[in-house]
Design a protein around this nucleic acid. Structure first.
Lengths: 330, 330
DNA sequence: AATTAGTTAGTAACCGTTTTCATAACGTGG
DNA sequence: CCACGTTATGAAAACGGTTACTAACTAATT
C-alpha cells in the first residue's frame, strides 16, 4: 500500500495525499477529510525511508556513549532522548565501550548521511578530525570536550569542581589527600587532577606524586589503587576519587583494610549517580546535572540541524558539592 | 559526490561502481582497482538512505527497553548491540520508561519500515496486537514475555528461580518469609510471586497475604514496603524481593529500623546486577545471564530477518542462585 | 466586466542507489 | 572457424515519497 494507491482510492493525486500528511493546511478541509478517511480505512503508513530519501533528512540522530552500562551516561542519554523524541527524532545508540576505534567508526553514519547529527559523549578523537567533521555536519560534544576545539560543547567545569571537592577535604582538616584519577588519556581525568592540584597548592599543601594514582573506570581498579595508597608508609587520610563507582571501590578497599570511612579515611566521589546516596556510607560527591546536560546538548544539536545561529558555543552547567557520610563526621 | 560522479571519473557506469561496492567478485580485478582508486581519491561514501530505499532494508533494528538507566537492561542491550554490530546492523534505542503508550508508539518504526526488526525487552501490549505484528515483522521478546504468545522469546524461568530463591530462605530455617513483588501488571512479577508461593506451599508454610507487598521498580518503593512489613505484629524474618535495586531498599529499611542483615532479616534479590556484589551486605540473588539473553535475542532476530526457520521459539536461559552475605550467616 | 490575488489540486521531475536485462567481448571445444 | 557458454559492462527502470511549477477556479478590487 503506497501513497499513490491511497490517492486513487480518494480520487486525488499522490501530491495531495502527501500534503495531507505533511502540510495539512495546504489542503481544503473537505479533501483532507476524504483523504484521511481512506488513510484510516486502509491503515496506510507512509514509507519513512522513501521520505528520508526524498527530503534528505533522516530525523535520526546518533549518540555516541563511552559506556552504556554506566549510571551516569544513561541519565545523560535520557535527557537527549526526551528532547529528541519531542522534536520527532529517533536516537541511534553508539556504545564505544571506551574504544577509540569504535568511536571513529560511528562517524561513518554521519558521512553516509544516515543520521542528521551526532552528539558525542566521548571525545577522544583528534582535534582536526572533529573540527573538519563539525564544519560539515551538526555535531555537539557533551560531558567530554576537546581543548581549543570550536565546537558546541556542554559540560561542567571539571577543574573547579575538582578543586571544590578537594577543598572540602582540606576544610575538614585533611592534609594528606590522595587522588585516584581516571585514565589520563581522558581530558576529564586531567581536568579533575588539575583541580585537585590547584586546591592543594593554593592551600600550601604538598602535591605528592605518590598520592596520585591513575585508575581505570571501574570499581575494581579503584579498589586496587586504594590498597596501594593505603600501604604507603604515610598513607593518606582522605582520597578524592575520579567518579562515584570508583569511590565505592575505594571505600570497599578501606573497609577491607579495617579502616572506617570517614573517620580513618574520608572519600569524595564525582557524578552523584543514584547509588551514591544508597551506598553505605553515602558518598560525598559532585553532582552533575546529567539530565540537563543531555537536554541542553540535544537542544543545541537541533539548532545546528535547523541552521539556527548559536550565540554561544560553550555551555558550562552548574554542578554542586553534595556532602554526605563518606567525608563528614557528624 | 554521488555514485554517478565516481563512475564518470573512473570511466565506468554507475552500475559498475555499485557492483564494486556490493559484489566486488562480479567486477574484473582491473576495473575494480580503477574504481577503488577513484573512490579513495575523492573519499566517496555511498548514500546509505538511497541504498536503504532501493533495497528496502535499513539494516537498523529497534530495541525497546522499559528503563535504560537500569543496570540490568543496559547489559542485555549490550549483548544485543554486539551481535547487531557484528552483522552490520545499527540499533535504535526506544526507552519507554515503563510507559505502555510509548511502547506502543515505537511499533510505528516497524510499520513504517524504518527498522528491519525489533526486540522488545518489555512486553506489556496486548497479545493479539503483538501476534499480528509478529506475523508481519521480525520480532523477538526478551526478558519479558506474553503468556501463550507464539513469538520467539528468550528469558529465564522466573517461576523456578523465584522458587529456588525462596527455598534457599526456607532451608536457612526461615518460615516467616515475605515477598515484595514488582508491579503486578508485569508478568515477571506474577511469575516470581508464583514461584514464591509454590516454595512456601510445598514446604508446608502458610502464604500470608500480609507478607506479600506489591512494590514499584525502585529503591524507594521497596524501602517503604519493607517498613510496612517490619511493622507487622509478627514481622517476617526473611524477604525475597523482586530485584536487586529493590532489595537494597529493603536492606536500607532494615538497617534504619535497627535490624541486622542477615541475622535479623535475611534478604534475597534478583538479577545479580553489578552493584549487588559491592553493596554491603552483598546481596544473595538470582543471576540472570544478561549478556547472553541479549545475544541470543539478537541472533534469533537475525534469523527472522533472513527468513531462516526457527527450530525452537522459546529459549530458557540458565539462571543461578548466588548466595552472599544478605541471607547467609557465616 | 476586466484584472488581480488567493486558494486548491494535479503533473512531473527528482532524490541515489541496485538490479534486471541486453549486449559485447572473449575463450573453448568440436 | 563456428557455435556456445562465460564473463564484464552498460542502459534504464525501479524503489515511494516531496515539491516546484502550473492551471483552474473563486473572490475581491477597480
Amino acid at each position: 500500500m503506497k501513497m499513490s494507491d491511497v490517492a486513487k482510492l480518494a480520487n486525488v493525486s499522490a501530491a495531495t495525499v502527501s500534503r495531507v500528511l505533511s502540510h495539512p493546511e495546504k489542503v481544503s478541509a473537505e479533501t483532507r477529510q476524504r483523504v484521511m478517511d481512506v488513510i484510516n480505512k486502509v491503515n496506510y503508513k507512509p514509507h519513512i525511508v522513501a521520505r528520508q530519501f526524498r527530503t534528505q533528512e533522516t530525523k535520526i540522530i546518533l549518540v555516541v556513549v563511552p559506556d552504556i552500562t554506566s549510571a551516569f551516561f544513561s541519565k545523560v542519554l535520557r535527557g537527549i532522548e526526551h528532547i529528541a523524541l519531542e522534536n520527532g527524532y529517533q536516537v541511534i545508540l553508539g556504545d564505544t565501550e571506551n574504544d577509540i576505534e569504535r568511536e571513529d567508526s560511528y562517524i561513518n553514519l554521519l558521512l553516509q548521511k544516515q543520521v542528521d547529527g551526532m552528539v558525542l559523549l566521548t571525545a577522544r578523537l583528534n582535534k582536526s578530525k572533529l573540527e573538519e567533521l563539525a564544519s560539515e555536519f551538526p555535531l555537539v560534544l557533551a560531558c567530554e570536550y576537546v581543548d581549543g576545539l570550536n565546537v558546541p560543547t556542554v559540560s561542567i567545569d571539571n577543574v573547579s569542581s575538582a578543586r571544590k571537592a578537594t577543598e572540602h577535604l582540606i576544610q575538614l582538616g585533611h592534609s594528606k589527600i590522595a587522588h585516584i584519577t581516571g585514565p589520563i588519556s581522558v581530558i576529564l581525568s586531567r581536568d579533575r587532577l588539575k583541580g585537585y592540584k590547584q586546591a592543594m597548592i593554593s592551600n600550601d599543601l604538598e602535591v605528592d606524586p605518590a598520592y596520585i594514582q591513575e585508575g581505570e573506570l571501574s570499581f575494581e581498579s579503584s579498589y586496587n589503587q586504594t590498597l596501594k595508597l593505603l600501604s604507603l608508609s604515610t598513607p593518606p587520610t582522605a582520597i578524592f576519587v575520579f567518579n562515584d563507582e570508583m569511590a565505592m571501590g575505594t571505600i570497599k578497599a578501606a573497609k577491607d583494610s579495617g579502616l572506617n570511612v570517614p573517620s580513618d579515611l574520608a572519600v569524595v566521589g564525582f557524578d552523584n549517580i543514584k547509588m551514591s546516596s544508597v551506598f553505605e556510607p553515602n558518598l560525598t560527591t559532585i553532582d552533575q546535572p546529567k539530565y540537563a546536560i543531555g537536554k541542553k546538548a540535544m537542544e543545541l544539536l537541533l539548532k545546528l540541524i535547523n541552521g539556527e545561529p548559536l550565540k554561544k558555543k560553550k555551555f558550562v552547567m552548574k554542578d554542586e558539592l553534595i556532602i554526605r557520610e563518606s567525608s563528614h563526621i557528624e
